[in-house]
Nucleic acid binder design. Structure first.
Lengths: 238, 238
DNA sequence: TAGTGGTCTAGACCACCGA
DNA sequence: CGGTGGTCTAGACCACTAG
């Protein structure tokens, strides 16, 4: 995929740690050794190791070395911007997706604010429920600005929209802002989800930006209380 | 504080952006210009700019430059490991802390698992409620391993434990794993919080590690549903 | 003291963007 | 085309850890 030297070194060691070839507590070869081994400079090795550190694979300790962390305890840094399909696939869960709404709309005032766009802009609206173990527990409401996503079909929505955007449309997602809070259930929630007698619902609002810092998607992911879980790995300072 | 060249350059520009001296959409001086201005190498400038990028202040675009993002829309990357006091102080909210429990305990099985420690280990237990606008809406249950925190007093708990740990004890917090989920309210929640008729509560579990990757604290922060909000800024890929 | 990671330098070549 | 950021190099000095 990306063929940077430092990135492939990062991947190689990330794989080794994930596969358990290196146990938690073990120390990696020193930066000088690795620079020698890969026939590269130490700064390049350091970029790879910094990635491992940022993603919770290792801890670098001055004067000692880089020690492997317990990624099971870290529970994978799945905090980032990953799509629903990526999460469930990596956990091996069987999921069904039901598309309830699909089409082009003009944004109302709320959407104009969220997407920072005008009333004339055309927007794709997609409403989907996610079924785990035969229960509809997550409601995803996606809004894409048509300017950046010219074509979308119901079939794509039933699979993974992100695979399509990044794979076929070659859109480059750059960063996202997430906001998590709890709201009272709406009539729509009750209509499209198997809510039992829960009165509230966890809402994850997601603003997704492209490489040139333009906002192109707003998503509301509404999770039944008992099925919500969010994990975050963070380094202090920087 | 830290007197790295790249870190102080990072701080300088972060301040400028926070203060609004640079408006969203403006572009920063090029890396070469800055290297010239600060009489340093371009790699050092790049380290500073990468920090700005990772923390949501700017977006770097190949061939164009570094453009300022709207940090209000980003809502500050307060996703990291910050203490309650830091958050509220930065938002200018008035908060009172009530200490309900304070003392040394031996860990039960649950705590032994969470803190990865033996039954003989001594643990500081602190239970505090946070009062916003005269309502107790957050219950913080902190557990510190005494080995790393020899002394703790009720007075410190009423202020900020983290100020004490980092300032006076000079403990270096390195990283943390956060887990967010929703549970049913317990009798303890009802006893120490003004819960109204909420049946569930947002639980933030926090595992905090020191520089040498040893776990030294486990915290459960229990938020009343209507008062919970979590913001996260994440870059895709890396 | 020898080895480690942390910072920094002064170059280099490349892919990308705008005029 | 010139300027931008992205990658990479081969050094250097430092602070820290361990034996």
């Amino acid at each position: 995929m990306r063929e940077n030297k430092y990135f492939s070194i990062y991947q190689e060691w990330a794989e080794k740690i994930k596969a358990g070839e290196l146990k938690p507590g073990e120390i990696l070869p020193s930066e000088n050794e690795m620079a020698e081994k890969y026939q590269t400079s130490r700064e390049t090795i350091r970029k790879a190791l910094n990635l491992l550190s940022q993603n919770g694979f290792i801890q670098k300790i001055k004067g000692k070395g880089s020690i492997v962390l317990d990624i099971n305890k870290m529970s994978l840094p799945f905090s980032g911007i990953i799509s629903f399909k990526e999460v469930t696939a990596s956990l091996g869960i069987d999921v069904k997706t039901i598309v309830y709404e699909f089409g082009l709309i003009k944004p109302d005032l709320f959407l104009q604010k969220q997407l920072q766009t005008s009333a004339k802009e055309e927007i794709w609206k997609v409403v989907r429920a996610r079924k785990l173990n035969n229960e509809r527990v997550i409601l995803d409401k996606d809004y894409f600005i048509k300017k950046y996503v010219p074509l979308l079909t119901k079939e794509i929505c039933e699979r993974s929209i992100y695979e399509y955007l990044e794979g076929e449309l070659n859109l480059k997602i750059s960063f996202a802002k997430k906001e998590i809070l709890v709201e009272e259930c709406t009539a729509e929630d009750r209509k499209y989800l198997d809510l039992k007698d829960f009165t509230h619902i966890v809402v994850v609002k997601n603003f997704v930006y492209l490489e040139d810092a333009t906002l192109f998607q707003y998503t509301e992911s509404r999770h039944r209380l008992d099925k919500f879980r969010f994990v975050d790995f963070a380094r202090r300072g920087l």
